[in-house]
Design a protein around this nucleic acid. Sequence first.
DNA 1: TATTGTTATACTCTATAACTATA
DNA 2: TATAGTTATAGAGTATAACAATA
Lengths: 150, 150
Amino acid sequence: MTTSDDVVDALVRTTFEVAGALTRIGGEHDLSLTQLRVLGILRDRRARVTELAAYLGLDKSTMSGLIDRAQRRGLLTRGKNPDDGRVVEVYMTPAGLELARRVDDDIRRALAPATGRLDPEQLGRLVDLLEVVLAHSPRAHAVPGPAAAS
Amino acid sequence: MTTSDDVVDALVRTTFEVAGALTRIGGEHDLSLTQLRVLGILRDRRARVTELAAYLGLDKSTMSGLIDRAQRRGLLTRGKNPDDGRVVEVYMTPAGLELARRVDDDIRRALAPATGRLDPEQLGRLVDLLEVVLAHSPRAHAVPGPAAAS
DNA sequence: TATTGTTATACTCTATAACTATA
DNA sequence: TATAGTTATAGAGTATAACAATA
């Protein structure tokens, strides 16, 4: 009989496996897991520094450093907010968008052997079950759209 | 209709959520995600430095540092291998085992709101589906037993 | 006064390269 | 020579505290 503990074990193991794959793929593009997430978040919209820090659960000073390094690489840009002089808006450059697209492709390709094993019905069931987990996760807030590079 | 891409999105989002929870819980005990994994791996058996590094996908020099810091905190110990003078065996101290137990409890408690939403049949289905993903994950090798703290 | 962001500082995590000791 | 592990070094990621600018 499957218990709640079994699900926790499977979730944790899957988390480390997927995180490992993401770390490896990110590394192939000189991106840390966190930089990968930043790119994923900014892929379809701009955001403020504090907003990004809140999404990622990081201090704003940490966020400043992450943005600095990504900006130095030409992946994103800082802009002023005309309505509030304190705010800094962060958004992707074309090079950043291009890199995000490539990383996203690599992620799907890396997970294909696993997801390709599931038939359409299983795919639907897995997504539904993961959505339940996500909906009741410790922080079912903050992170808006697709997390990584999607 | 659910596609392979939808599953990848859900897996990635779940990965970041669970990893976030593990990072937070680890942090409450002054443990990084990596230290958390080390404790989880050594919970039920000892291992060599290189073996641990391979499991975690880290360089052996990185592993040396991780062991140093955990050992300095009294969580684990280094021992010699009588059959091969080059080998260093790493194993948990009672304090390390006790901490691993507490962290494990916290993890299950943190995920309970999510897993508690699933009925027995759903629990079984989710575990089965995650096992399929794990079996065909990019590195369905190395990591032996339960990954984190189980 | 409160909020937004940056900077200074310190520590952990990480890899590369060079090294020691053992095989 | 090859393998196991450590150390030195450098850079990224992280938080805390102090700060500047704006509200």
